[in-house]
Amino acid sequence: MARILVIAEQRNGKLSEATLELCKAAKEIASGLGATPAAAVFFKDDSLAKEVANYIPEVFAVVDGKLGAYDADYYAQAVKAVVEGQDVKGVLIPHSYDGVDYAGKAALAIGAGIVSNCNKATVEGGAVVFTRNTYNGKIQEQKSVKTDKFVATFEKGAYDKEAAGGAGSVTAVAVSLGDSRRKIKEVIATMAGSVDISQAKVIVSGGRGTKEKDKYNDVIVNLAKKLGGEYAASRPVVDAGWTDAARQVGQSGKTVAPVLYVAAGISGAIQHVAGMKGSQCIVAINKDPEAPIFNIATYGIVGDLFEVIPAMMEALG
């Protein structure tokens, strides 16, 4: 029977959560198609393959000294080898930093259409229909592939992780890897900073809508102080140098879960939301009633943050 194959992902020998989430996606899609779910793990030994087998019934272990760390060329070659050798119909890859780096290449290598950045998949009339965010999360679209095989990348959190009934099988697959054009020198930390916003009970976060550094300080920093909390920001604010990188919330910044998170002038892009959706109470202040941030907020005010925040300061007394 054809297989729906998850490509596992690891950093420093630790599997990503997204890998385990995709095991559930593979089971759902496979059951809709009458296929079987499986995973492929590329690593320097088979330890991680055994771990993944707790989440999916069949695991292919590609073991090679070259696979200790992620590499685009090796991954594309390994995906091609497993897909061609093991009757694979669909390939599921996390839409993560590594996933984005090779998924398109892997799709071309196996001649498959790819739908990237998906948040859902359903099987309709024997075809898999993928749902994905577009226009910075304002619009959803549905797509499928026209090719016999498919590749899809999924947003983190699209599926829950779910252990399998028992340990699955682990089968070694021999792949002869060619060359890679990239050579990793080192991995470095770049966001070190004195402040740790992840400990704060209250966070007031400002986005591009705060317009400029002085205004950001004026509204966001002051409201944070008034509430006895920390101030934070979306990525564009950090990119523009209005505040430190250590205060960035999101996929490439900090993950926070305070009691209260105020998002002002932040649209609610998935990469931002990834870092704050666990907050207990979320307040969104945005002049655009269609901003996606309102879809996850507890309370919302549609209005100009430069009017709303001073009014909040006043109401707080």
């Binding site: 229909v129 577009t134 619009i139 499928s144 269609e290 879809n295 996850i296 919302g300 005010i301 009014a311």
Partner: peptide, 27 residues
Amino acid sequence: KTKFHKMYFPVSEHKAEIIQGDAKAAA
């Protein structure tokens, strides 16, 4: 290699409670 089906505005089950009124009243 892919086929577009449709697009639509997302419907959220968790839509925020939108507080009405002018800035002062809403705040």
